[in-house]
Amino acid sequence: MSAVSAPGGRGWAGKTLLLARKDLVIEVRGRDTLPPMLVFSLAVTLLLAFTLPDTSRPSTRIVLPAGTASVADVLAGFIWVTVLFAGLVGFARSFEVERHEGAIDALLLVPLDRSGLYLAKAMTNLAFIVAVELFLFPVFAVLFPIGLGAGVVAIVLLVDVGFVAIGTLFAALAAQTRSRELMLPVLAFPVLVPVFIAAVELTSDLFLGRPTRAVVSAGWFGILLAFDLIYVVVGALTFEFVIE
C-alpha cells in the first residue's frame, strides 16, 4: 500500500488527512523542517542555561534594568520566544514543498474546498510544533525548576492552536513574496503578540505553582481562548483568498 494513499473515504476529511499525511511522509523522508527547529530550540535552551543566575526556585527575583522579575516570568518568556521562533522557522518552510516544481498549481486544481488545504497544512505545522515542545519542555524541566502538569499541557495546546492557525495563514501569504523568510515574521509577529503574552502570563503563573483552576479563571485565559477562536475562523475563511 502506498505511503500516501487515502485513509478511508475520499470526502473532505479523507482528502484533508491525505494531504496532511503527504506532508508528514515528505518530512520523514527529507527531514528538512523539524531538525532545524529542534537545533534552534536546543541552542536557545543551552544558551539560557548558561546565562541565567541562580534559578533553583521559580520565585527567585532577578533584578533587571526596568525592575525585578521572577525566574518563572523569565523562563516562561524564554520558552515561548523559543517556540515562537522555532515555529516560524518551520512555518516558513511549510509551503516550500508546494512551490517547488509548481505542485501548488496542481494542488489548487484539485476538487477540495480550500479549508481542507488550510487544515491539512495547519495539522502538519501543529505536528511540528508539538514535536518541538515535546523536546523543549522536558529539557527546560531538567535544566530549570519548572513543573509540567496537566495545566501547562492544556495551555501549551491552546497556544499552539492560535499560533498554528495564524502562522499557517501568513506562511501561505509570505510564500508568494520574494522575501518570504523575512516577510513571515514581519507579518505574523504583531498579530501573534496577544497569544504569546497570554501564554507567558499563564505559564508563568503555573510555573510559580498557582493552582490550575485559579490560572484558568484569570483574564488571560479568556483572552487566549478568544484569540484562538478569532484566528481559527479568520484563517479558515481567508485562506482561499490568500492561496489563490
Binding site: 500516501v4 515528505i26 496542481a106
Partner: peptide, 11 residues
Amino acid sequence: AGHGSGLYDRL
C-alpha cells in the same frame, strides 16, 4: 501541467 512537473520530489 505547467512549467514545473507539479510532483513532490520525495514521493
